[in-house]
């Protein structure tokens, strides 16, 4: 028998129409491997609203509900309420939403859902822009990036604001469990989703999902970038359980951010000065995270 490091069962059908090298495609595949077949998925407007292909096709081997862009938090609340009302207790409810659907238009419903401590998982697959509509900036787009609405053809027309920290926002709700994952590290990814599944109440997963057409790189490099994002500390892997931070991967020698930025067309306009600035911001955030890890042991949710 072959030995696999992540569950063998496939709950995503082949034949879906995600782009070649789609990071979001791997995220949903790993997510469902961890959650298993007794799962119901709610999907708002996002790439995965269309990747099944047109009616009557479905790309998932679990029941799937399509909903409006801004509704995921409310939708998974409704699914959970119905399951509770119908006495179906053993089913996991998960919302699979993009960064725009989570950090922008869906943030109210997400906040409401977590504040009510709805027993469901909210999974944000983050490709750092509105990719389904053609690469427009979202609040999860990182500082310095080109998108079609931050054209970077002149100084200061790139994304000038930092990426919104969804983890900080959900932890501020006193969520029982929140974690970051990267598709470059499937074992860590699956372990965290399995951990999330075992906990009652609201859970949030933030998944780092490189996007070849949106980030302007060749699709064979999806995994390389997914790892490099972590190994440069641009996207640290950590989890927050009951308010206690735990960094799950600490690169012994973090790679310079330049290695990560330099392989993507969306950053090709960056000057050395800007890259240095991004390096500085990255180091600062990483140090803050290290500090949080220490502090939150004694002061869960940082004592707030």
């Amino acid at each position: 028998m072959p030995r696999f490091s992540i569950p063998e069962q496939e709950l995503v059908y082949s034949g879906h129409v995600a782009c070649p090298g789609c990071g979001g495609g791997l995220a949903i595949r790993y997510m469902l491997k961890a959650l298993g077949p007794r799962t119901i998925v709610s999907i708002p407007a996002c790439c995965w609203a269309i990747t099944s292909g047109p009616f009557p096709r479905t790309a998932l081997k679990v029941p799937t509900l399509d909903t409006a862009f801004e509704t995921t938090g409310a939708s998974i609340s409704g699914l959970r309420a119905a399951l509770d009302a119908l006495g179906m207790k053993d089913i996991t409810v998960v919302g699979y939403a993009g960064d725009g659907g989570t950090a922008d238009i869906g943030i109210q419903a997400l906040s409401g859902m977590i504040e009510r401590n709805t027993d469901a998982i909210y999974f944000m697959y983050d490709n750092e822009a509105y990719m389904n509509t053609g690469i427009q900036r979202s609040s999860a787009t990182p500082f310095g990036a080109w998108t079609t609405t931050t054209p970077a053809d002149m100084d200061g027309t790139w994304k000038t604001e930092p990426k919104k920290s969804m983890m900080a926002i959900v932890v501020a709700h006193k969520i029982p469990y929140a974690a970051t994952v990267s598709i470059g590290f499937p074992e860590d990814f699956v372990r965290k989703v399995e951990r999330a599944k075992s906990i009652k109440g609201s859970r949030f997963i933030h998944a780092f999902c490189p996007c070849p057409p949106g980030w302007k790189y060749s699709p064979e490099n999806t995994i390389k970038l997914a790892k490099l994002g972590v190994n440069t500390n641009v996207f640290p892997l950590y989890e927050v359980e009951n308010g206690v931070y735990k960094i799950t991967m600490k690169p012994s020698k973090p790679r310079p951010v330049k290695e990560y930025l330099g392989t993507q067309g969306r950053f090709k306009h960056l000057t050395d000065e800007m890259i240095a600035q991004i390096q500085e911001r990255t180091d600062k955030t990483w140090n803050n995270l290290l500090a949080l890890e220490g502090f939150s042991k004694e002061h869960p949710y940082c004592g707030l």
């Binding site: 939708s75 609340s77 409704g78 699914l79 119905a82 399951l83 119908l86 504040e115």
Partner: peptide, 18 residues
């Protein structure tokens, strides 16, 4: 819920399960 918008979505999703 935290808005009428979410009230309607909760009902829609609940109805999707019958």
């Amino acid at each position: 819920v935290e808005s009428e918008h979410s009230a309607m979505q909760v009902c829609i999703s609940a109805a999707a399960l019958g």
